[in-house]
Amino acid sequence: MRDVITSMRLFVLTILVCSVAYPVAILGFAELMAPQSRQGSLLRDSAGTVVGSRLLAQSFTQPRYFWPRPSAVDYNASATGGSNLSPTNPVLAERARQSIERLSPGAGELVPADLVSASGSGMDPHITLAAAILQLPRVAAARNLSQQQVESVVRGHTDAPTIVSLGGEPLVNVLELNLALDQLTQQSADNNP
């Protein structure tokens, strides 16, 4: 019986410490030190509307945009997840085949693996630089830009500096890249009405 009473006291103590004091302290610190990212690193367009999160992929299907990696949850940021398909599952091979078909690489051209593999969260905001290069012709054509123009934007938006500095492959944040392209197109549209 005394165990129950002591357990209750311990319950009150720990819940005050762990579930009240601790999160409140972290919330306060976050508000102070990282007011932007604490809300989810949201990106806004020039009008101020939220267009997405820097950290999350979103669906791009139009040819004028770079496409992110496949998503098993169709980029639903309120119910995320991976495909959970095993390498021996024929469904996975079939899905990869469809992805490749959609990307329609040139003859003899190999598709980077990240563009045919779904990420674990379904929300991976990155693609590899190679995956961006593969999509260059399509995007440039859709936007009536030269491939060099688009490529310079791509190279200007590589991410993951640590990985690069350690000798890894550069990554590209798809949403940021597409936003930059939209801005570029917007500017050129403004300049040449």
Binding site: L92, P105, P112, A113, D114, S117, H126
Partner: peptide, 26 residues
């Protein structure tokens, strides 16, 4: 090793990326 699912497909040889995020490294 690459995933067996891509055998025979025109995919660049790479580690198994299904279910993985790119930003953490290989």
């Amino acid at each position: 090793q690459p995933t067996a699912a891509f055998d025979g497909l025109p995919v660049a040889s790479a580690m198994n990326l299904e279910g993985k995020e790119l930003r953490f490294g290989p």
